[in-house]
Amino acid sequence: MSPQLTHIQHNGEAHMVDVSGKPSTVREARAMARICMRTATLALIQSGGHHKGDVFATARIAGIMAAKKTCDLIPLCHPLALSKVEVTLQPQPDEAATGMAAVHIEVLCRLHGQTGVEMEALTAASVAALTLYDMCKAVDQQMVIDSICLLEKQGGRSGHFLRQESLL
């Protein structure tokens, strides 16, 4: 039997999945995003010379806030009591594939609950990248956000998922 869309009822109507009967377990998800930019833009961020302040700190906080607000942004997501949200920003000064610099964003979300945290991790990675874009758009209109994906998830009935191919 092929997997079914869980948010669509048999009559085609969208609905919020009832997780009340599911066991509460530790759930964890890791997601990523990447933002490519000019080398000079990354150098400006790393030097602390950006007039808007600490760009990485702001993006990290935005990602954490976004994870906590995912249920307000994605219509059928459950409100979750996250126990951990970690946003890591890794500068990549010279990417061979693009000839540009990049920032690799990785997010870890964890909780003990009845549903997974994939959407929270993906939302956090996306918003952290968008925050970097917003803070740097005045100096670099060539930035590109890409590679938003789930890297790994653990817990729950569907078990462990680990992305095999590298997007870096």
Results as ranks from 00 to 15, higher is better:
residue 1 M to W: 10
residue 3 P to D: 13
residue 4 Q to E: 05
residue 10 H to R: 14
residue 10 H to P: 06
residue 11 N to K: 09
residue 14 A to W: 08
residue 16 M to E: 06
residue 16 M to F: 08
residue 17 V to F: 07
residue 20 S to F: 11
residue 22 K to L: 14
residue 25 T to L: 09
residue 29 A to T: 12
residue 30 R to Y: 07
residue 31 A to C: 09
residue 32 M to S: 15
residue 32 M to Q: 13
residue 35 I to S: 01
residue 35 I to T: 04
residue 35 I to A: 03
residue 35 I to L: 06
residue 39 T to Q: 12
residue 40 A to M: 12
residue 41 T to F: 02
residue 43 A to F: 03
residue 46 Q to P: 02
residue 48 G to S: 14
residue 50 H to R: 09
residue 51 H to G: 05
residue 51 H to K: 14
residue 54 D to Q: 07
residue 55 V to D: 02
residue 60 R to Y: 01
residue 61 I to Q: 10
residue 63 G to Y: 00
residue 65 M to I: 07
residue 66 A to T: 04
residue 70 T to D: 13
residue 70 T to S: 06
residue 71 C to E: 08
residue 73 L to S: 05
residue 76 L to I: 14
residue 77 C to S: 08
residue 78 H to K: 11
residue 78 H to M: 15
residue 85 V to Q: 07
residue 92 Q to G: 08
residue 93 P to L: 08
residue 94 D to K: 11
residue 102 A to S: 13
residue 103 V to A: 08
residue 104 H to C: 06
residue 104 H to R: 15
residue 105 I to N: 01
residue 105 I to C: 02
residue 112 H to Y: 07
residue 115 T to R: 00
residue 115 T to E: 09
residue 115 T to Y: 03
residue 117 V to H: 01
residue 126 S to H: 04
residue 134 D to Y: 00
residue 134 D to C: 02
residue 135 M to W: 01
residue 137 K to I: 03
residue 142 Q to H: 10
residue 142 Q to T: 15
residue 146 D to N: 07
residue 149 C to N: 08
residue 152 E to M: 10
residue 155 G to Q: 12
residue 156 G to C: 10
residue 168 L to K: 13
